[in-house]
């Protein structure tokens, strides 16, 4: 009798335990997209600069061009052999399978958009998600009379030397000042004018006091 009660208690405890474990298992949600590169790793990749590619090099069998612009822009005109995956749709399952397939077949994904700045962050996102077979096409896409024009573009080039410009303007001003001085030399003499004002003020006070 005592033995029976003991087993009863144990079986109840064990079923409860197993139930808890099962609930834990089923309610656990695996995040759909997980990063495979942490931020440090990404930063390293970013500062190594080897992910740019320009128009001259894209004629390669191993490259798969992916156009990240909207479907509307894509219809208007796109680069040869490009497929269209708009940025907001990157994480759709269909598109993810496309990316996975490209990765499995050892192809390099080449992202292109209206300009490199636009392509930049989608590129970074895909890289962090583990699609590290990826490159960024440095190209500016423009339309002229409905014809697509693609030009190589340069990234992060300083277009103007600001310090030099400011110094130049200061120099110019100094020169202008010189010129101005040559023409209007009597100016310094006129500066003595404030002296005249002072005696005038004194005169003012005097008569007022007398009036009182």
């Amino acid at each position: 009798m005592k033995e029976l009660e003991k087993t009863k208690r144990i079986s109840i405890a064990s079923t409860l335990f197993i139930l808890a474990v099962l609930i834990g298992l089923f309610t656990y949600k695996r995040p759909k997209n997980t990063y495979s590169h942490d931020t440090k790793n990404t930063l390293e990749k970013v500062s190594n600069y080897n992910y740019f590619i320009n128009l001259n090099d894209i004629n390669n069998q191993d490259y798969a061009l992916v156009d990240i612009r909207s479907a509307f822009d894509f219809e208007k005109g796109h680069l040869k052999d490009a497929i269209n995956i708009h940025t907001p749709d990157f994480l759709n399952e269909d598109n993810l399978t496309i990316f996975k397939e490209l990765k499995n077949t050892n192809k390099t994904i080449v992202l292109c958009g209206n300009n490199p700045q636009e392509t930049n962050l989608p590129f970074l996102l895909l890289y962090q998600l583990g699609y590290d077979n990826i490159k960024l096409l440095t190209v500016d896409i423009d339309y002229n009379q409905n014809r697509l024009i693609a030009k190589n573009s340069e990234i992060e080039t300083s277009k103007a030397d600001v310090t030099a410009f400011i110094q130049e303007s200061v120099k110019k001003q100094a020169e202008a000042m010189k010129k101005a001085k040559v023409v209007v030399k009597p100016k310094p003499k006129a500066v003595t004018a404030p002296k005249k004002i002072i005696p005038l003020k004194k005169k003012k006070k005097m008569p007022v006091e007398g009036g009182c």
Binding site: N33, Y35, T39, F90, L121
Partner: peptide, 18 residues
């Protein structure tokens, strides 16, 4: 261990990027 993945979820990052 998946939850230990650093930072905000990818979906959130994507919408921030857009």
């Amino acid at each position: 261990k998946y939850q230990e993945s650093e930072g905000i979820p990818a979906e959130q990052l994507l919408s921030n990027i857009i």
